[in-house]
Each structure stands twice: as structure tokens, then as C-alpha cells.
């Protein structure tokens, strides 16, 4: 395999990492029935927080931790507003999207353009020696490996543990979960905060791993919306969500590769591609296209395929639940 292609694939994996982590975080939150719409702002705020803390302490690890706290705090506002104050999650989320993006820009002024050491490069000992695969997947930094573990861990948690079953239940049928003794709102707090913390980690992955630094306007602007769309495209399933993140990162990598050749394709056209892909994927999963596709297959296979390709949102998504 030639070196250039190998490098493109390697960059693809690196740049898919923040999207994967953010989308997995949002999956965890939405599986509990809460929408954290603030991703586009949260990512910017946590990116600047992580970068700023890394600049002041010299430690990228502390930066990641601070970014996770920032992401969790934004999520806490959403949880409090929807559970305690009965406000609309989408409305609060949207206001936070704008507010946090502006706040990130405001607090980022002193650290903009500064340099700091990003998350240290750490090729995994034996795995990175595997030809081709090792170079593409295991020749990165710790955040990339964490994103793999998160996908597997979240899948195992949601579909192979009792607690994960309760987690899904509070997003699907909170009344039944409550009747079985699950403390719905307490758990919703926990999953919203956990999801927010992961969104924060994703923010740090932008400013301390993919492209170390902070600029205004930030490089990840718009990716929050893409991550939200990936969760829908991924049918709230960790593996498909990861696939979606790699699809979008792949498109970006291809666009970047085209840009560096002499092909006379305007940059603006390349920049619209992720958004065209976003509409196309949502169209595919929302318009019943999947159902029509399934009918081609024999009856016995349909059930299995449907569980894999399913794209109905958690039934109680965006609603609130009164415990009494």
C-alpha cells in the first residue's frame, strides 16, 4: 500500500476521534431520554477550556480533565432546566449552543495563537507493528484508543448489562422503568452529565490532538451539529454511530486530499459536501428508505437486520418525567 494513502487513512482515524467521542457521549445522553442540543457550543467551550488549562499548567492531561468538567457543567444546566424547572430541552440547548460558542470566543482571547504540547504520541507496543492496520489504527495518542474503548464499552453497557437495560428503559418507557424501581430522574442526571463529560473530552481532542491550538473562529465550528446528526444516522447504536463518524471524517479526508492536488474543484464545493452528506443520511434513515430496503431481504433475515438498521429514536426522547 503506498505511503500517501496510508497517511490519508491515518489522518482519517485521528480526525474521526473527536466526532466519535462526542457522538458516543450524545448517544449515552439521548438513550436516557435527554437531548443535549448544545454540542456545537459545548465542543467549542470545552476545546478552549482544555487548551487554556494545558497552556497554564503545561499538562495536556489536566487540560482534558478540565474540558470534561466544562462539558459536564453545560450538560448539568440542561439536566437541571429540564428535570427541575420543566423547561424545553431543545430551547435551552439551542440558547446554550450560541452562548457557549460566544463564551468560548470571549475567554479564548488571551490564549489564542499560543503553543503548547498536545496529547503525547503513543504508538501501542505490539499492535502498532501489525502491517498497515497497525499504522492506521494503533499509531496515535491515547485519546484515539479511548474512543475505541468507548464504542465497545458503551455497546457492552447498553446491550449486555442489567444497568444498561435500565438505562435504555428510562429513554424508552420511563413509566415502566419507574414502576420497576428505577430512579428515572436521578439516572437521567447521571447519563446527561456522563454524556456531557464525553462531549468535553471530544472538545479537548480537537484542541489538543487533531490540531493543537485555539483560533477564532474555532476549527470545529459546525462539527457539533454533525455529531448530533451522526447519532440519528447511527440509530442510537454505538457501532453505527462510530461508522457514521468515520464516514464524515472520511469525506473530510478525501476533500483535504483533493484540495492538495491540482484538480480544479472549488474549495467552497468541497466545504458543502459534509452538509450534503448530512441531509442525505438523515433523508435515508428518516424517510422510510430503510424499511423499503429491508423488504428486499427474506423474512427471516428482516428481523435481525431491523435490529441492526433500526433508526427510531428512544420513545421518550426530549420528554420529561414526573416522579410521584
Amino acid at each position: 500500500m503506498d505511503d500517501q494513502l496510508l497517511n490519508i487513512l491515518r489522518t482519517l482515524v485521528l480526525s474521526a476521534t473527536p466526532l466519535t467521542i462526542a457522538a458516543i457521549g450524545e448517544t449515552i445522553t439521548e438513550r436516557a431520554g435527554v437531548i443535549n442540543l448544545s454540542l456545537d457550543g459545548s465542543l467549542a467551550l470545552s476545546a478552549v477550556t482544555g487548551f487554556g488549562v494545558a497552556v497554564f499548567t503545561g499538562s495536556p492531561e489536566l487540560g482534558i480533565l478540565a474540558a470534561m468538567v466544562a462539558g459536564a457543567l453545560v450538560a448539568l444546566i440542561i439536566a437541571l432546566a429540564s428535570i427541575e424547572l420543566r423547561l424545553d430541552q431543545v430551547a435551552i440547548g439551542f440558547v446554550l449552543t450560541l452562548l457557549m460558542a460566544d463564551l468560548a470566543e470571549f475567554v479564548g482571547v488571551p490564549v489564542a495563537g499560543q503553543r503548547v504540547q498536545g496529547v503525547p504520541y503513543w504508538p501501542l507496543p505490539i499492535l502498532s507493528d501489525i502491517p498497515i492496520v497497525g499504522r492506521i489504527f494503533f499509531d496515535h495518542n491515547a485519546l484515539v484508543y479511548i474512543s475505541y474503548l468507548l464504542v465497545i464499552g458503551t455497546w457492552f453497557w447498553l446491550f449486555r448489562t442489567r444497568a444498561g437495560q435500565a438505562h435504555r428503559a428510562i429513554g424508552e418507557r420511563p413509566e415502566s422503568a419507574y414502576a420497576r424501581g428505577t430512579r428515572v430522574n436521578l439516572q437521567r442526571y447521571a447519563y446527561t452529565l456522563a454524556g456531557g463529560a464525553l462531549v468535553g473530552m471530544a472538545g479537548a481532542a480537537y484542541s489538543l490532538s487533531v490540531r493543537v491550538g485555539w483560533t477564532t473562529p474555532p476549527s470545529m465550528l459546525g462539527d457539533g451539529w454533525i455529531a448530533l446528526a451522526i447519532v440519528i444516522f447511527g440509530g442510537w447504536h454505538p457501532a453505527r454511530v462510530m461508522l457514521g463518524a468515520y464516514l464524515f471524517a472520511g469525506l473530510k479526508a478525501v476533500a483535504g486530499a483533493i484540495q492538495s492536488t491540482d484538480l480544479a474543484i472549488p474549495v467552497t464545493l468541497l466545504n458543502t459536501l459534509p452538509w450534503v452528506l448530512m441531509i442525505t443520511t438523515l433523508l435515508l434513515v428518516s424517510s422510510g428508505g430503510v424499511e423499503r430496503l429491508l423488504r428486499i431481504f427474506p423474512k427471516q433475515m428482516q428481523y435481525r437486520l431491523r435490529t441492526i438498521l433500526r433508526s427510531d429514536p428512544p420513545r421518550a426522547l426530549g420528554t420529561r418525567f414526573d416522579e410521584r
Binding site: 431543545v90 467552497t268 464545493l269 458543502t272 450534503v276 441531509i279 438523515l282 428518516s286 424517510s287
Partner: peptide, 30 residues
């Protein structure tokens, strides 16, 4: 149309169309 015919939530359709419109402007200026 994306919402009523194809079930694409107007938030996501809107965000994507915003970005596309702004790229079209840049292309027209250039």
C-alpha cells in the same frame, strides 16, 4: 419539504442548508 415529505427534522435540515447557503455566497463572490 425535507421535513414534511422526508421526515428530516427542521433543525438539522436548517443547519445544513445554512452552511450550504453560506458556501454558495463565497463561491458567488469569488
Amino acid at each position: 419539504i425535507l421535513k414534511t415529505k422526508f421526515g428530516v427534522n427542521e433543525i438539522f435540515g436548517g443547519v445544513a442548508l445554512n452552511a450550504i447557503a453560506s458556501q454558495i455566497t463565497l463561491q458567488l463572490i469569488a
